[in-house]
Amino acid sequence: MIWATIGDIFSIFFALAGMFFMFVGAIGVVRLPDAYNRLHATSKCSTLGIMGLALAAVFHVGTLAVTTKAIMTVVFAFVASPVGSHMLAKAAHIDGMKPWDRQLSDELQQDKDRQSGKSPSNAPRGLNAPTQAKGAKPAGPDPTARMSAAV
């Protein structure tokens, strides 16, 4: 009786947390301005939301089969979600998806331009613009250039 009550308290807490994160992820998918930002919201939904709901199931039901399957689901979601998000973002960048117009910098595009030999086409705007204008002379000691050369 007392253990069932304690388990239900934990179950209510984790169910509320999981529901909150699932709904916040769905709202973020609608409200955020860009596909890259929307991928950010998707990973919240799929990791924290699934983990909260699975913990609610574990604390309420509590049998061995439910615990094992919930752990399998959570581990799979934690492995699969970043891989899918990364591949989708990379594919969208290859496809040339138009980014948000208030985006600060696109470092993958700068690396691609640098590796293909031409100067970085999209100079970063906003916060990075003054530093980029200061170090605009070619072959400057740029940490990003060293990184891409090392790769």
């Binding site: 769905a26 998918v29 596909a35 929307r38 991928l39 799929s46 989708l88 594919a91 969208a92 496809d95």
Partner: peptide, 10 residues
């Protein structure tokens, strides 16, 4: 198209 795939994932 990435938006649609992403919403399908969600």
């Amino acid at each position: 198209l990435a938006d649609r795939v992403l919403s399908g994932d969600t």
